[in-house]
């Protein structure tokens, strides 16, 4: 996982020493200033670890009471019955939510991986320099669109479009959410995939071209095998992005607890459930705590995906 950029460390005024330093000795203020600065920077570095553990601790604390006292884990993982506010028979089965998350993410990846990797290959290997700069800016712009705007597009553009093209009664479904997630995770795949391809030494390209390979043969036979770890990491980071996305899927997937049988069925995801229900659950209630347990589950999934991506990238460095 990336550390957040060190915030203000560089802007601290250093020139506390206005006295006249004579000879080789530095003024005490300058020495002190430097060691303070060093500590500030060190703190910024460590803060990332603190934040990650802090968040994990907080989420765990809110949910742990119910996790070990009251929650039936079998029901939680294997039941599709999600009735957290039922008066007579409360049931907390998140299987449908897990399936919802993975169906949307999976379909999104089916769409995004070919597009994302194709775009990365084009930008890195086939594009002229001028085009490359323009394209990269545009692709990064795609990453800058807020997810609520994507959700809005899902409702107002994709929804009628899907109804019309596929002749289905409702356009807010798995396909809609997957298309949005695909568009949202393509930019990260392109930029990381391009980095991976750029990292392949030019001598490999030259060797291949000098043997008479075409550019496409060079990509397929030399660059893809050489960059495969980096490209896999790009895909995994895209997956992580898609699993964690909330607002767009909340708006575009129909928000119905349901195990989908086709891409045109509405679903509900883990993230959307938390976003939609946390505000209404009273603090400390079992419902509230179950939502935090879902949070722990999500945290674990994205942590695992990121960790695998990281290990895969380390693999590139070695091989």
């Amino acid at each position: 996982m990336n550390l957040p950029p060190a915030p203000v460390a560089g802007t601290r005024p250093l020139s506390v020493s206005t006295g006249s330093p004579r000879g080789p000795r530095r003024s005490r203020a300058a020495v002190l200033g430097e060691s303070v600065l060093e500590w500030v920077i060190r703190l910024c570095g460590i803060s990332a670890i603190l934040f990650v553990f802090g968040i994990f601790f907080f989420v765990l604390r809110e949910g742990v009471g119910f996790l070990f006292g009251g929650l039936k884990l079998g029901e939680f993982f294997f039941s599709t019955e999600w009735y957290p506010t039922s008066l007579s028979n409360v049931r907390y089965g998140v299987l449908a939510l897990i399936v919802g998350t993975f169906s949307v993410t999976g379909l999104a990846m089916l769409i995004a991986v070919p597009f994302g990797l194709g775009a990365a290959i084009f930008v890195s290997e086939f594009c002229s320099d001028r085009w490359r700069e323009g394209l990269k800016i545009l692709i990064e712009l795609l990453a800058a669109i807020p997810s609520v705007v994507w959700g809005f597009i899902g409702i107002s553009v994709m929804n009628p479009l899907i109804q019309e093209v596929f002749h289905v009664p409702v356009g807010l479904n798995v396909l809609n959410g997957a298309l949005l997630l695909a568009l949202m995770s393509v930019p990260i795949m392109v930029s990381i995939g391009e980095d991976a391809l750029k990292a392949v030494p030019d001598s490999f390209r030259e060797a291949s071209l000098a043997m008479g390979a075409t550019r496409w043969q060079t990509v397929r036979r030399v660059l893809l095998p050489a960059a495969k770890n980096g490209l896999l990491a790009a895909i995994l980071l895209g997956v992580g992005r898609a699993v964690g996305e909330t607002m767009a899927v909340l708006m575009a997937t129909g928000h119905a607890v349901n195990i989908p049988k086709s891409p045109f069925d509405p679903v509900r995801t883990l993230t959307a459930t938390i976003a939609a229900e946390l505000g209404e659950a009273s603090v400390g209630s079992p419902h509230y705590q179950v939502l935090f347990i879902i949070g722990i589950l999500l945290f674990t999934i994205t942590f695992a995906v990121n960790l695998v991506a990281d290990l895969v990238v380390k693999g590139t460095a070695k091989g």
């Binding site: 030259e206 043997m211 008479g212």
Partner: peptide, 29 residues
Amino acid sequence: LRKSIGMVFQRPNPLPLSIYENVVFGLRI
């Protein structure tokens, strides 16, 4: 042209493939 005129570079640059695949690379393409 490049098939009939081979080139050897300053730094050895075997492709990131197996020894076998390096040798048959020309045939494969």
